[in-house]
Nucleic acid binder design. Structure first.
Lengths: 160, 160
DNA sequence: AGTCAGTAATTGCCAGAACAGGAACATTGC
DNA sequence: GCAATGTTCCTGTTCTGGCAATTACTGACT
């Protein structure tokens, strides 16, 4: 936010604006592209991705909810919609009749694979090609820990 | 997406995941914090920020809509809500009776300034302190062009 | 067995977001 | 002056998201 570049802004603020604007702009493009070509938005893609990487028995609703990047809460309704589109199936958990396992259908698997392929092309075009490999390496190293689940330690303390 | 780290993934994909996960996680925290302490979400903050940096005459709806980071369409309704909270005012455009200028009210200016102060503290805590200045500098340099409006040129061509 | 706190997921409700359509106005060319 | 075309913003409608309450079940304790 705060578009004008105030020369007294600390470095981390410029860095943050870069991360923020890049992801926001690229997601706008990617979401629109996915909706148009694959027929579902990134929120679905996020869920399908988790299930694709999950063991074949699928995942519990709670796990999905915790891992979801884009939507906080409302996972029941979201899975309802994805299920109505036959990309996903709810199955009983063997030993716990309260629980539900969410599993990819064959169609869901195929549609996800196709969407992933296209999505990667979009990201490559909008992001990958626009920086040098050295720049990508620097960013990947710096932000590595955010997608490796928990946030990293304080850089001013020594911890690695 | 695609949580597991496939060793054959290109560098730009790791880099992208870093940007994506970092911004998503940090925005979740920042949005919740702002809602709780300032009484409005990041979508409002985004609009207020544009107006704060705009000339005193304010901005047209269209400009706001184009620049908005978080909000896809529906700017009329969004400005309705912000206006109902007295943070913003619609004024006629002298010479074009279709048009509207959206202007910050005094209260809007104050509330924005307070929110910005707190927001920066949150970002510093969640992001600023977690990387070294060198890392921040690298990211800021690489992603500079995304918040300097249009995306950068292809890194494989020479353009700077 | 019977009760009771704890857990998993769904439902209802309302604010907010997305999308299409339309009214009011400006601008251009005749 | 007048019609044709594009702009600017709003309204109607439908869908999504967030939160609290609810249902259905489990596991432990008596």
């Amino acid at each position: 936010m705060q578009l004008d570049n105030d020369p007294q802004d600390p470095v981390w603020f410029d860095s943050w604006r870069g991360v923020l604007f890049a992801s926001a702009r690229i997601l706008q493009v990617a979401d629109r592209d996915m909706l148009e070509h694959d027929g579902f938005p990134l929120t679905w893609f996020d869920v399908l991705a988790r299930l694709f990487d999950a063991p074949p028995a699928g995942m519990r609703m709670q796990e999905l909810e915790e891992l979801a990047l884009f939507n906080r809460g409302g996972m029941t309704r979201l899975v309802d919609r994805i299920e109505a589109a036959s990309l996903v199936r709810r199955e009983p958990v063997p030993g716990d009749r309260r629980g539900v396992r969410v599993v990819l259908t064959a169609e869901g698997r195929n549609r996800y694979a196709a969407a992933l392929l296209r999505h990667r092309q979009v990201i490559e075009r909008e992001f990958g090609r626009r920086l040098t490999p050295a720049q990508h390496r620097a960013i990947a190293d710096a932000l590595w820990s955010w997608w490796h689940d928990v946030g990293p330690a304080d850089a001013t303390q020594d911890s690695g």
